[in-house]
């Protein structure tokens, strides 16, 4: 390679390297170092595992942590179940303009910010909101119903936020399935369930895994939705990190929590890939 070409390559790569270095690698190295520093006296820090020990000894922390993990898996599963028929319809039934329209409809809510979208749900779900009003108007409830500030509301909001990110990779995967392969599945005597189980789902597997990873990551790291829809009952692990950094001003503790969250999502993604027998490479191509 000539030096000119090498320079061109370097210049083209530079933004990506700067992006990764300054915004991802550097902060994480900083956070990693920070998470191992213990405060022994005002303004005096020393190396130690105290911040991680604190996490395991204080039940509120690890319970919130476990709760975040379990609820995120639940949200991912629900999103997958909801998105699959939608993606199947978009990929295999809809044609031309209708297909573009449907994808646009999925995308539309993302034109407003997450905060506004979540506030929209609050308007619907709160005690004086639309659903509560309709329940009373139809006589199904005698007094105002509070639908906010429970796990159901948090899951609803998170599923809603994740749906698009599940539908797109799923629809992509399903679109590449040769229609005659599905027909052959029926022709050889397969019922709808058999064709779905043995042909459609195995074919869509890379899309399913890709969508699930994206939705899981977005859910675990979400902040606004659990806080706004869950209120005091939200108890999302990101709130703990926020509290340590912003409210308690205990940066080392927050940094330790941040590292733990990173470990958690990496571990679960790895387990998911192992469980479904998918490689990270094929999955990334699908997403």
């Amino acid at each position: 390679m000539t030096s000119a070409r090498r320079l061109t390559l370097f210049l083209m790569m530079a933004p990506a390297i700067l992006w990764l270095g300054l915004l991802i690698v550097l902060p994480h190295v900083e956070i990693l170092i920070l998470s191992f520093s213990e405060r022994v006296a005002p303004r005096v820090y020393q190396f130690g595992f105290g911040n991680y020990l604190e996490f395991f000894t204080e039940p509120l922390y690890w319970r919130t942590f476990a709760r975040t993990a379990i609820m995120s898996i639940l949200v991912t599963a629900i999103t997958l179940l909801l998105a699959f028929p939608i993606a199947l319809y978009i990929a295999r039934v809809a044609r031309g303009r209708v297909k573009a329209m449907l994808l646009l409809l999925c995308l539309l809510p993302f034109w407003v910010s997450e905060l506004v979208r979540t506030l929209g749900w609050m308007m619907l779900l709160r005690e004086t909101g639309l659903i509560s009003y309709l329940l009373r108007a139809t006589g199904l409830a005698t007094q105002p119903v509070e639908l906010l500030y429970n796990d159901g509301a948090v899951i609803l909001g998170l599923v809603y936020g994740g749906l698009l990110f599940m539908i797109v990779p799923l629809a992509n995967a399903l679109e590449s399935l040769d229609p005659s392969v599905v027909e052959a599945g029926y022709d050889l005597g397969g019922s709808r369930a058999t064709v779905l189980r043995r042909i459609v789902i195995p074919h869509a597997m890379p899309g399913i895994v890709a969508g699930s990873i994206i939705v899981f990551m977005l859910t675990v790291g979400n902040f606004a939705t659990p806080v706004l829809l869950g209120g005091k009952n939200g108890l999302w692990f990101t709130e703990q990190i926020y509290a340590q950094f912003i409210t308690r001003f205990n940066w080392p503790q927050g940094a330790a929590f941040g590292m733990l969250l990173l470990l958690l999502s990496s571990a679960i993604v790895w387990a998911g890939l192992r469980l479904t027998g998918q490689g990270l490479g094929t999955t990334l191509r699908q997403a």
């Binding site: 040769d178 005659s180 392969v181 027909e183 052959a184 599945g185 043995r198």
Partner: peptide, 8 residues
Amino acid sequence: QSLALFPM
């Protein structure tokens, strides 16, 4: 025509 073997 495409044979439609099941690649999975």
